[in-house]
Computed example of a mutant assay.
Amino acid sequence: MTIVTEYFDEFPFDGEPRVLRRDEELLLSRAVPRMPGVSWDPIPPLKVVHFDQTYQDGAFIPPRILWEGETGRIEWMQMNFRQPMYHRNLDVDEMSYQIRGERTLMTEHGTVELRDGDFVRIPVGVAHDNYGRRGSHILWYFPAPLHDVGVVVRTAEVLIPPFAGWQAETVNEVHTDCLGGRHCDRAVQLSDETLLLEQAHHESGRLAVLSSHVDTDSTSWVWRGAQHAIGVVDITDSDGTLYRRRRNVDEVQYQIEGTRLLISANGVVELTPGSFVHIPLGVAYASVVKGASRHITTVTTGKLDCVWDAAADSEQWDHARIEAYRAALFGAADS
């Protein structure tokens, strides 16, 4: 018998979680009907999506919508071009994490160069354009407002020209709602780009670039709102006997660095850099890590559905296989 600890917590995580002792083999098992005619809904596997973190040469592809619901959307995008428009969200803050490559972000709240590991939030209603060079990034669209609560490493500036070779032109400006989605254009017009960039002189706000580096074995929140939060989790040498169950939020994780075995009753998956995984609310999970691991966690009180057709399913492991995996990394544990 392997006794593990479960932290049963609830968003917004402003109190201590309940701490429960569990028999791990039972925790990872499926319930058995105890009377005729009684059954439970099928328990679906975890959904997993993977994109290589290095730039993949090829033709232009639009943003990949991975998870979405009525109150949010998560996308992945590869970029080696300049966006063909300035975009203005009418209903959401737009957050991003720069996975690889360089990207110039030009907005009415200033211009900033983004590099590997940078987080940045564009407030609702602020026009913006992107110029990416062999890069990829994650995008989140959540109803405003979210608040910057992470460590600021630099802020945007008023830069005209915003990058080498730039020339003043008339540009397209598109206003959308529907969580920044396609086919939700509400106004489309031409605009003077110089006036858009000079608007930063008249704004009190500046974009803040936030760090993805956190203390070992901790969670550091980058943004928080009434219904959503995004942060970074560092784990070092974990045998996976500490489980966590979120009472009231769906969670999507993105593996930044290291290899991590994610264990749950809904399935087991080995996560490598570039992997996304969705953990529905109420599902207990643990991470087995030898060495160091870092991932992004996104939690939301709104339900998220995987809409990426190429998503893979997690595998079902029996308890003996999980124990063997632990033993291979850390040696045999006492029962």
Rank of each mutant, 00 (worst) to 15 (best):
T2Q: 15
Y7A: 03
G15Q: 12
D23Q: 13
E25V: 08
E25C: 09
E25F: 06
L27D: 02
S29A: 15
S29R: 14
R30I: 14
S39M: 12
I43C: 12
P44Q: 10
P45D: 07
K47T: 06
H50N: 07
Q53P: 07
Q53R: 13
G58D: 03
F60N: 14
L66G: 04
E70L: 11
T71Q: 15
T71E: 15
N80P: 09
N80W: 08
P84Y: 07
M85K: 08
H87Y: 07
H87Q: 06
D93V: 09
E102A: 03
R103P: 00
M106N: 06
T111Y: 12
H128V: 03
H128C: 05
N130T: 10
Y131C: 05
L139V: 12
A144Y: 02
L146F: 03
D148H: 08
V151S: 01
L159I: 08
P162L: 09
G165D: 04
E169N: 02
T170H: 02
E173I: 09
A187Q: 06
L190G: 00
T194Y: 04
A200I: 12
H201M: 12
E203H: 03
G205A: 15
G205D: 14
L210G: 01
S211T: 07
H213N: 11
H213R: 14
D215S: 13
T216L: 12
T219Y: 11
S220Q: 11
W221D: 03
W221H: 10
G225R: 13
Q227A: 15
V232T: 11
V232G: 03
D234I: 02
I235C: 03
T236H: 15
T236I: 12
T236P: 01
R245L: 13
E251Y: 01
Q255T: 06
I256A: 03
N266C: 10
V269K: 05
T272I: 12
S275T: 14
Y285R: 14
A292V: 12
R294C: 05
H295Y: 11
K303V: 11
E315R: 06
W317L: 15
W317G: 00
I322K: 12
L329S: 04
F330A: 04
A333T: 06
